[in-house]
Amino acid sequence: MRAFRVLSRNIRDSFKSVFRNFSLSLASISCIAITLIVVAVAIILTYNVNNFATLVEKDVTIVAFLDVDITEEETKMVEEEIKKLDNIENYVYRSKTDITEEMMDSSDIFGSIMSEWKEEENPLQATFQVKVIDIDTIGDIANQIKGINHVDVVKYGEGMVEQLVSVFDSIKNVSLIVVIALILVTAFLISNTIKITIFSRRREIEIMRLVGASNINIKIPFILEGLVLGIIGSILPVVITIYGYVAIYNKFGGKLFTQIIQLIKPEPFIYLVAIALVTIGMIVGMFGSWRAVKKHLKI
């Protein structure tokens, strides 16, 4: 009960102190807010990239077009070669006839034209559709397939997916560096704010010591002040994250750029991100104030 009263008094004092030095607090709060917005972007990007990378990986197929005049034996040889490849999940052979029938089914116009074709005239190529296990290896495997005799061309989404993944990966890496730098700056700023609070309350601290407040009791209000700064600083980023992500998700109908890039559903994702932001804000705030207290509140 007694500890509770002391704590509630300390929390009240921390809020008071934040508003007493408001211009100073505002600098820290803005810095936390900016940091956390970048953190939010980084988290959202990372999870979405990981998400669509896994989605894409599930459906990544290399299509190998065989020579038009390939024989049945030669096709067997190509198949043997494909079987030998590492890192492939499965493959499907589709003969000229399969493809022709499929196309004729899909459209009446195709149907009427194609029905006239003789076997030798058919310009379509038989294909092997090879699914790879890991998207990172898709380029290699495509090259290997291309090197097989009687394989004419190889296609696999023209590298778009790979490029996208690598672009998002580099954004992820850059934002990680930016986040670390921002966190350091923020911690420093908070530490400085608390330092000034400590100096402006020297007299109070002196009297607290004199009348027998324990060291923890003297230090806690300052640590709490950092915590309060962190919490206040995370309000705006949380609001932006929740409303911003939902808006983007709705605008693009959950898809970005192409059909294959599926955004993560907002719920509960945004709430988890919000919790992460508040937690990071609190930790950075406490870390900054803890440093200031350690350095400037020698008792």
Binding site: V6, R9, E204, I207, G212, N217
Partner: peptide
């Protein structure tokens, strides 16, 4: 004296007890 100028007489004296968390 070492009094806190922002606090009243009552609050200055009470300060010494508040740090212990008395009711």
């Amino acid at each position: 004296f070492k009094l806190l100028s922002k606090l009243t007489v009552y609050e200055n004296v009470a300060f010494a007890l508040e740090v212990f968390g008395l009711p």
